[in-house]
């Protein structure tokens, strides 16, 4: 069952990739979807606005950031965790 967070994150990523949400697979990487570093920064901004959270991400060192952007699944998981942290 897809969660509300997942639906909303996928919608944001799909919009950035100029795709339909149904075309975004959980295993896709941002590169698979044609999202470059600027697109990623924009998507993260959109996620922050959508969930009113602060995402730790430095474009100079994406791997070193606490926010795992290696796939759509990892992004969804990271957002869920940030949303959960916020409500506790």
């Amino acid at each position: 069952m897809t969660s509300d967070v997942e639906t909303r994150v996928v919608r944001i990523i799909a919009e950035q990739a100029l795709l339909e949400p149904s075309d975004v697979k959980m295993t896709d990487t941002p590169v698979d979807l044609g999202i470059d570093s600027m697109g990623l920064v924009e998507a993260i901004f959109a996620i922050e606005e959508e969930f009113d959270i602060s995402v730790p991400f430095n474009a100079n060192d994406p791997q070193g950031s606490a926010f795992d952007i290696s796939s759509v699944r990892s992004i969804v998981a990271a957002v869920k965790s940030l949303v959960a942290d916020q409500t506790t």
């Binding site: 920064v41 993260i44 430095n58 474009a59 100079n60 060192d61």
Partner: peptide, 20 residues
């Protein structure tokens, strides 16, 4: 800040662990 290229610790050009 919005551009996400700013370092929060130092400017360390050419270093493998540079952060912006």
């Amino acid at each position: 800040e919005g551009l996400r290229v700013m370092s929060k610790e130092a400017c360390r050009p050419f270093c493998a662990t540079r952060t912006g």
